[in-house]
Amino acid sequence: MINVQNLYKKFGTNEVLSDISTTISKGEVVSIIGPSGSGKSTFLRCLNLLEVPTSGSIDINGKNLTSSKKNIHKIRQQIGMVFQHFHLFPHLTVLENLTYAPMKAKGIKKAEAEMKARLLLERVGLSEKETAYPNSLSGGQKQRVAIARALAMEPELMLFDEPTSALDPEMVKEVLDVMKDLAKSGMTMVVVTHEMGFAREVADRVLFLDHGVLVEEGQPNEFFSHPKTERAKDFLDKVL
């Protein structure tokens, strides 16, 4: 489904990603881990062209991302993204947050968009909040709304950039539960996370990035119990 070949990204002279190649297949859940500043967010953001790669190619469903600037909206509509800091639209109600993009970007009728949005809110356990504004929600609730907002576009792929890092500890679980649910439903997911438990339990594969290099990848059990590289060992020693 996603095929990344020789991806490089530079900010000025700072090479943030070097020569990353990997493929992610449909329905796979991939966790990206690595020290802070290693390029995890940048990699994720390249997958929906929030960052433009310096060189290399990214194919999604056989369509080359970097050469199709024109269809960028269409491609992004198939890729949901969840941010560390939620980025809900503060001037719209929860329901409007969910219906806005389907109506504006896909031309879906209001009644239909609202019906689907209500189903999604039910799924993330926030039905009673549909008329609330984001500022009145807790962090965990905000992130669940943000996930529902991304799902409202009916994407084929979901990207998560440290979705629980900005949350109070007691709210992490409610968000991870929603994500586990989503993984079970067969969604293709790429998740940057510091939640090693989640990576171990839910991910089909772990990518370990360090200094912009894809140092190691493998099955979670394999990776966490027998890391092959020194760098991965060092990192795991620090976080586990």
């Binding site: 929030l50 269409k74 993204m81 941010f83 809900l88 993009a101 970007a105």
Partner: peptide
């Protein structure tokens, strides 16, 4: 982040 969220949704 507001612009990025909207862009990511394909708006």
């Amino acid at each position: 982040g507001q612009m990025e969220a909207a862009q990511a949704l394909g708006v």
